[in-house]
Nucleic acid binder design. Structure first.
Lengths: 212, 212
DNA sequence: CGTGCGATGTATCGGTCCGATACATCGAGA
DNA sequence: TCTCGATGTATCGGACCGATACATCGCACG
């Protein structure tokens, strides 16, 4: 999941670790707390080893301009490669079961602007099915096993059940919206993309709720 | 977290691994998918090594009664020890930051029937603060950084923000309820507790929502 | 009658990710 | 001047997951 998120973000612009973490937190703040450096740095190393990202020297700056005031600190800027972009496209399109769990879905959704409509629809529907199953499980417990559980546990289940119902409704809206044509996709900044932020086309709808 | 959950469940009755997993799924179904055996078995071993649980031979059954039809399969039943109960009490009472994240809070909440009122209140309030902070973070992003993000990402944030608001309201209700006296606590089955399920006293309130 | 499948049951392995920790620089304010 | 918070890179042990392996049991379907 981290791999997908990093590749996605680096497609918008090259970044160093710290910056990447901040952007990750901003983009995924709704679904996970804050990525740990204990995951981030090893993953960066892994992606680099696989050839999906490369180090881009932090402003070598014509060598003479400001000749190292105190030795120039070591910031490592990463940049996505062509292979990395392919890898991203592959990861974003293929949907396994982990695509539908809370974190997986959230990350995929966060990059919907770079996902084609058919895939968006597929993921939305898969997520809906997953949540519907969770909902049924909770209904079962609240129905058949209620007397075995204490009041607090039951309250927790009710809470969860309600969240499931809300999320299903939210997904229904998104799916309907998706089918009805309004379908934004970012134009893909491409290789020659020098620091251009993308605020993409039409909004998916207007609804609210949940917390994956 | 798993440690706490296992200790809590084994306090209700001895169980073998498979059964434990089922009960865990029923009790925590609202907050986590389903515990993996890859976590469960190693954790059981760890708890046993620490002396908090012991193996209880699966119905040695008077040795002669049904003299091994096909050699008797190997079910391993675990039972909590006195030290284990102490450990549970300690874990349930002490609240670190991990007590307030989604999973941690869920597990603690699920065992509120075995938690004293002061601790319940403390945890509920800590959770509220945590969610309020998350909420503020999302509001910031939706306010100050909105133009940098695409429509789908924004929708995700809105969704998350709404969930935070709902959860805060839910927690407010629970806190008010808790303060106003109605405070259930399970009588603690004790050492000599042979398979008695606990359906504990008064309900914490009646509300709905969320999904940690 | 068998035979195969789904539930029950225990267990390990590699991999992802987290939390704590360490260490260094920089600018702003006491 | 000195400290503090933000910036910045990095590692280590541990928790937990997903895949996989393997064995037994009962029952439904051919």
């Amino acid at each position: 999941m981290l791999e997908l998120a990093i590749l996605g973000l680096l497609q918008e612009s090259p970044m160093h670790g710290y910056e990447l973490r901040k952007e990750l937190t901003a983009k995924l703040g709704a679904i996970r707390a804050a990525i740990s450096y204990g995951s981030l740095y090893p993953t960066l190393r892994r992606l680099q080893a696989a050839g999906w990202i490369t180090e881009a020297a932090e402003t070598p700056a014509t060598a003479e301009e400001v000749p190292a005031l105190t030795s120039r600190r070591g910031r490592v800027v990463y940049k996505i490669t062509a292979e990395g972009k392919e890898r991203f496209a592959q990861l974003i399109a293929q949907a396994g079961p982990e695509t539908y769990d809370d974190t997986g879905f959230g990350v995929h959704f966060a990059f919907f602007a770079r996902t084609d409509q058919a895939t968006r629809l597929r993921i939305l529907e898969g997520r809906r099915r997953t949540i519907e199953e969770r909902r049924e499980g909770l209904r079962d417990v609240l129905g058949r096993a209620a007397e075995r559980l204490d009041a607090y546990t039951l309250e927790l289940q009710r809470h969860g059940l309600d969240a499931c119902e809300r999320e299903v409704r939210w997904l229904e809206e998104l799916i309907a919206n998706e089918r009805s044509g309004r379908a934004p996709t970012v134009p893909q900044p491409g290789t020659a993309g020098g620091r251009r932020d993308n605020n993409s086309p039409p909004p998916p709808g207007e609804s609210r709720k949940e917390r994956p």
